[in-house]
Amino acid sequence: MSLFLFPHSIPSGGAAGLAILINHWFHISLGFSLWLANIVFLLFALPYFGFTWTFRTIISV
């Protein structure tokens, strides 16, 4: 991804694709926008999966 998709601003699926779009639209750094996208996804997962699953996902990644 970092060798082909990110330099050419080609969005892929998931958080990386959303990060590329955030970077393109708002000129936020790619690393920060990837963190931001993942945090938003985890916040949406929290009520659905619960705290334990979400916390274990954060620790495992």
Rank of each mutant, 00 (worst) to 15 (best):
M1S: 11
S2E: 12
L3V: 08
F4N: 04
F4A: 06
F6H: 00
P7Q: 05
H8S: 14
H8A: 13
I10M: 00
I10S: 06
I10R: 05
P11L: 12
P11K: 08
P11T: 06
S12H: 00
S12Y: 01
G13K: 12
G13V: 04
G14V: 04
G14E: 05
G14P: 11
A16M: 03
A16R: 03
G17T: 00
G17N: 03
G17L: 06
L18N: 11
A19Y: 05
I20S: 12
I20R: 09
L21W: 02
I22C: 08
I22R: 12
I22G: 11
I22L: 15
I22S: 10
N23V: 01
N23W: 12
H24V: 03
H24Y: 15
H24G: 13
H24S: 14
W25Y: 15
W25F: 14
W25E: 15
F26N: 14
I28E: 15
I28P: 13
S29H: 14
S29G: 15
L30T: 12
G31H: 06
G31T: 04
F32Y: 03
F32A: 05
F32H: 13
S33K: 03
S33H: 13
W35R: 13
L36H: 10
L36T: 15
A37W: 06
N38K: 01
N38P: 13
N38A: 11
N38Q: 08
I39Y: 04
I39H: 02
I39V: 15
I39W: 12
I39G: 07
V40K: 01
F41R: 05
F41N: 00
L42I: 08
L43R: 03
L43W: 04
F44M: 09
F44H: 02
A45C: 09
A45Y: 03
L46H: 08
Y48M: 12
Y48P: 00
Y48D: 09
Y48H: 04
Y48V: 12
Y48L: 08
F49Y: 15
F49E: 08
F49K: 00
G50E: 08
G50Y: 06
G50K: 10
F51I: 05
F51M: 05
T52S: 02
T52I: 09
T52M: 04
W53T: 05
T54S: 07
T54C: 02
F55P: 00
F55W: 09
F55I: 02
F55A: 02
R56I: 05
R56M: 06
T57Y: 08
T57A: 08
I58N: 01
I58M: 11
I59W: 03
I59R: 05
S60M: 01
S60Y: 11
V61A: 14
V61I: 13
V61G: 01
V61E: 04
